[in-house]
Design a protein around this nucleic acid. Structure first.
Lengths: 260, 260
DNA sequence: GAGTGGTCTAGACCACGGG
DNA sequence: CCGTGGTCTAGACCACTCT
């Protein structure tokens, strides 16, 4: 039943009628399955982007119930080792990109600098007015005109984040005439002379739910990282207020900072 | 079957024989359960630290299988809304603490500053020698003497992180004579005159597995945040190399930085 | 249309905790 | 001890993709 030349996924598992094993690693079936798949990836039998065998094939090979197989797959998904494409299958995750919020090169440049292929898709771009929260962020009265841009960004063709960017219309009049499928940073600098001298960044692990999950085509509940960045220019004006929702397996954050 | 004065957890669900509902929110049973619990928390019927009804009680109240109940609970756990104590029950999560790696006040002070009660437990403290990786971090030859300290830290009595700290024995000779249940920062500064002027911090969402999960008494696979901090003094020497594994629902990171 | 993952049921037994 | 969550089975039907 076990594919030849591969470790037996059940080899660390005690059957329920056998005496308990003294194996210090545990004998849980779902972790056995986890280790089996992780081992195939570590051994190079499965590479980044490869599709795993279907759940029912794994079930046949391992002799355990499909629910148990899925528990092991969920574990690997939480670890960032594999990901799923809805109703298509499970795939080996590509490595994360490194994101340094202290560097003010945008997404496009730092992804490219790491040898990956970035792309951006604008979901919407519209004029809005400041509610109480945004008014406070921008230091404007409620009702002040703002622009809201929603984008989805990809690395090597895989959607990795969705974001909502708010820009003060007073600083970037008529902003909506531009395309946002490239770098917004460049537009703000070249067309409006706005450059960023300070970033206030907040990050929090979260679950991708509802709209974000739908936009990233992931199941609701997948772990994610919420990144809120407020960018200021040298005069202390808010140039950009950006809320990004990342897939948890797509990035690593690295900052190098002087201590205050 | 539904407790009075509470939303019916099944109210958004279509039975399998009914015609499909046009409700734009979906009718999945596990999300119905999620919304039911989330609603009770939002309404104040359940507060931070409260214990939820047992899975079997929820099963009775909602008329769905226990596996489905658990799927809804896992969803809320991923969102950071609830957490579990192994074989004890599900509890409402307390709010996260805010952690600013640019400020060189340690865990104890910033947790206290937010009105929470920190505590620290030393798991082990020992002398080790540098392997290739640590030698590279500290700029020492392989085999150089180092200290390794493993600690578990709590907020309001809940274990929120485990960490492994490595310190160069040449900079802090005889370090092991101290207790590490308080601030290591203070020890390094007061006893050895070491102060930090630069931090290199890397953060990555991860899953808490094996040792970390066991040390935090969580189930393997719970989402977490891995934080690696390398601290340098004014001469560029590595004062501290710290790898922390946080519960994903326990912290929010906030940095305020000048752009390079 | 075949195959995939997504959801759900209705049980069972287990390990561990002190509700 | 009893109750808890943790694991597991062996099915079923559904929604969706197209491997």
């Amino acid at each position: 039943m076990i594919p030849p030349n591969l470790p037996d996924p059940m080899s660390r598992s005690a059957s329920q009628t056998d005496p308990p094993r003294a194996d210090p690693t545990d004998g849980l079936h779902y972790l056995g399955m986890r280790d089996y798949i992780a081992g195939r990836i570590a051994a190079g039998a499965l590479k980044a982007g490869d599709r795993l065998p279907s759940e029912r094939q794994l079930q046949t090979a391992g002799g355990v119930a499909r629910g148990t197989i899925r528990q092991g797959l969920f574990q690997l998904e939480a670890e960032g080792v594999i990901y799923r494409r809805d109703r298509s299958g499970w795939y080996v995750s590509p490595p994360p990109v490194v994101y340094d919020p202290t560097r003010w090169e945008g997404f496009m440049s730092y992804v490219e600098a790491q040898g990956r292929e970035p792309s951006t898709e604008t979901l919407s771009a519209e004029s809005i007015v400041a509610d109480a929260m945004l008014a406070s962020v921008f230091g404007r009265p409620a009702g002040a005109p703002l622009y809201l841009i929603r984008r989805r960004r990809y690395i090597d063709g895989r959607a990795v984040l969705v974001e909502r960017i708010v820009v003060d219309a007073a600083l970037a009049p008529d902003l909506l005439r531009f395309s946002f499928d490239q770098s917004l940073t460049s537009i703000l600098r070249q067309a409006y002379g706005l450059s960023v001298s300070r970033n206030q960044v907040t990050m929090q692990p979260c679950a991708l739910t509802r709209e974000e999950a739908e936009a990233l085509k992931v199941k609701s509940g997948l772990p994610g990282l919420s990144v809120v960045r407020t960018s200021f220019d040298a005069q202390g004006r808010v140039v950009e207020y950006d809320h990004e929702f990342w897939r948890h397996d797509a990035l690593r954050i690295s900052v190098d900072i002087r201590v205050r």
